[in-house]
């Protein structure tokens, strides 16, 4: 009798343990990154060393920008608090190594999505949060108004370790112009050298040019030429091999864009729970079980919208209101003439 009770208790214990394991979601068990993030209590995010509008720290060390908001969205979804992010400023050269070596879990640092980066070096791009293209900045006094006026011997300042160096070569070669590339390791030095007159032109992504122009000693003396010489879809990157984490980051970004499409923003998100539209109800977690697939609760997307805002809010706050690029251009919703189009959250 006593033996039987003992056996029964151990059976109960075993069942209890098994149950405890199954309640910890399958997804969390599959995703090492998600588990580690929840254990640490913060999202480890790699950002730039200072690019206004994208990722930039103020004097108090608070990071803002559209790239920063992607990490905040993931933190809101996974940890429930958009401020639980540890930002690591990285140079263009360090960024991929920092990600593949496990020093950070998301790289959200105005990084161009290309085939070789996606396929070759252990990275996975999860989406596009800014459609950009490479352009040129010149001095107004030079009288140059188009890239067709460049002549042999033009010196061009830029950063190393970016697609910029490759596009620049393709551009000048296709035009048959000889040029002098002056490539620095850090953006601040590029700005200083161009400002001093070392180079005739400064080339990088147009958003970058607009942002760096504000750092010049006399921004009004410089213009960004109208031509765009390359496609630069910028987006967040994760390590290859953790598909659950990849999905969380991808859909955190997608939710922000979809929220704008349905007119859900940080102010009206709670009220939208009673919306007639099932798509909106799913978006704010009032219908369906969307979070379960990632091992998250059902309010993950609601928290993103409430704490970070939708994509339009993020763009306005970081890029438009700061005067960097008031015109959204291609970064407008597909319904409004832009190319922002994300798969439906359902």
């Amino acid at each position: 009798m006593f033996k039987l009770i003992k056996q029964l208790t151990s059976l109960v214990a075993v069942i209890a343990v098994l149950f405890a394991f199954t309640t910890e979601s399958m997804a969390a068990k599959k995703s090492k990154t998600l588990k580690n993030t929840q254990k640490k209590g913060f999202v480890r995010c790699g950002v730039s060393q200072g690019l206004p509008g994208f990722s930039n720290a103020d004097a108090a060390g608070n990071w803002t920008g559209v790239d920063v908001d992607v990490c905040r969205a993931v933190a809101a979804a996974v940890l429930g608090d958009a401020n639980k992010v540890k930002f690591t400023p990285l140079s263009a050269k360090e960024r991929f190594t920092a990600l593949t070596s496990g020093e950070i879990d998301i790289l959200s640092r105005n990084t161009t999505w290309t085939l070789s980066r996606d396929a070759d070096i252990g990275l996975t791009f999860v989406g596009v949060n800014f459609y950009d293209g490479q352009g040129f900045m010149v001095r107004k006094s030079s009288g140059i108004t188009s890239t067709s006026q460049f002549k042999d011997g033009t010196s061009a300042c830029t950063n190393i370790g970016t697609t910029t160096e490759l596009n620049m070569r393709d551009f000048f070669n296709s035009k048959g112009i000889s040029y002098e590339p002056v490539a620095f390791e850090k953006a601040d030095e590029v700005v200083a050298a161009y400002d001093a007159g070392r180079c005739d032109t400064y080339t990088t992504d147009k958003s970058g040019l607009a942002a760096q122009r504000t750092k010049l000693s006399n921004p009004d003396d410089h213009i960004v030429l109208p031509e765009t010489i390359s496609k630069e879809p910028l987006g967040p990157v994760v390590r290859q091999g953790d598909s659950v984490w990849e999905d969380i980051v991808r859909w955190s970004l997608n939710v922000m864009i979809e929220a704008e499409e349905y007119g859900v923003n940080s102010a009206n998100a709670d009220a939208m729970k009673t919306s007639e539209n099932p798509a909106i109800k799913r978006l704010v977690g009032a219908e369906g079980e969307l979070g379960a697939a990632f091992g998250l609760d059902n309010e993950w997307s609601l928290r993103i919208i409430k704490q970070v805002g939708n994509y339009g809010e993020s763009y306005k706050r970081n890029i438009a209101d700061t005067g960097i690029l008031p015109d959204r251009g291609p970064n407008e919703l597909w319904t409004k003439g832009g190319i922002l189009y994300v798969p439906p959250a359902r």
Partner: peptide, 8 residues
């Protein structure tokens, strides 16, 4: 620098 970045 550059070569490391381009090839990874």
């Amino acid at each position: 620098g550059t070569a490391l970045m381009q090839t990874g």
